[in-house]
C-alpha cells in the first residue's frame, strides 16, 4: 500500500493551501507521488492521493491521464526521453531513438532486459537550439550523436 513520506504529506498540505481551488494543486502533488513511488503513478497511489487531498478520484485521474509527464507504467531507474519533435527529427532524432533501442534491446515505452532503462519518444522539450537532445530523469543531454547518447546512458547505468 503506497503512502507518502511525512515530508511528502506536509508538501501536499502546503500545496493545497497555495491556490484558490484545491484542484490546482493536483499537478505538483502528482509529481511528488511519482517521485516517491519510483517514477510512476499507480492506481492505488491515485486513490491514496484522492483521500489525502479530499478530492474526487476522477478529478485526479483526469489530470494524471492528460499529461504525458506522469508515467502510467513502472519505468526503469533511468527514464530516457528522446525528443522527437520537428527540429530534433531534422537532425536525426528518429535514427538516434532507433539506435538506442537496438543497442539496449528494448522497444519504445518498454523496460530494458535488466529493468534499469525505459526509452520513450516525447514531444518538444524546448531545447531546439541544441538538437537532437534527450532528457534522462531530470537532466538534459544535448547535441547528441548516436554514439555519445549510448555512452551517456551506459555511464549512467554504471553509476557515474
Amino acid at each position: 500500500m503506497f503512502k507518502l513520506s511525512d515530508e511528502g504529506v506536509a508538501y501536499v498540505k502546503k500545496e493545497l493551501e497555495r491556490y484558490e481551488t484545491k484542484r490546482s494543486a493536483i499537478i505538483p502533488c502528482l509529481y511528488r507521488v511519482q517521485s516517491e513511488n519510483g517514477g510512476w503513478v499507480s492506481p492505488e497511489s491515485i486513490n491514496y492521493l484522492s483521500e489525502l487531498m479530499d478530492l474526487p478520484v476522477a478529478w485526479i485521474n483526469e489530470v494524471f491521464h492528460f499529461y504525458t509527464m506522469f508515467n502510467k507504467e513502472p519505468v526503469g531507474k533511468l527514464h530516457v526521453q528522446v525528443c522527437n519533435n520537428i527540429t530534433c527529427c531534422m537532425l536525426g532524432a528518429r535514427e538516434l531513438t532507433e539506435h538506442i533501442s537496438k543497442t539496449f534491446e528494448m522497444g519504445i515505452d518498454e523496460l530494458s532486459k535488466d529493468g534499469k532503462i525505459t526509452l520513450s519518444k516525447v514531444e518538444c522539450l524546448g531545447s531546439c537550439d541544441t538538437a537532437p537532445m534527450m532528457q534522462i530523469n531530470d537532466s538534459y543531454h544535448e547535441n547528441l550523436t548516436p554514439e555519445s547518447a549510448v555512452k551517456i546512458i551506459k555511464d549512467m547505468v554504471h553509476g557515474n
Binding site: P43, I46, N47, P56, V57, A58, W59, N61, E62, H65, F66
Partner: peptide
Amino acid sequence: FTNEVSKTNELGIFNRGDRSEVGTFE
C-alpha cells in the same frame, strides 16, 4: 451532471486528444 447535480463526481474525461474517453476511475 455527476459534479453538479448528483455531486458524486464519479465520471471524468481521461486521456486527451482523439484518445479522450469518458469513464470512471478504474
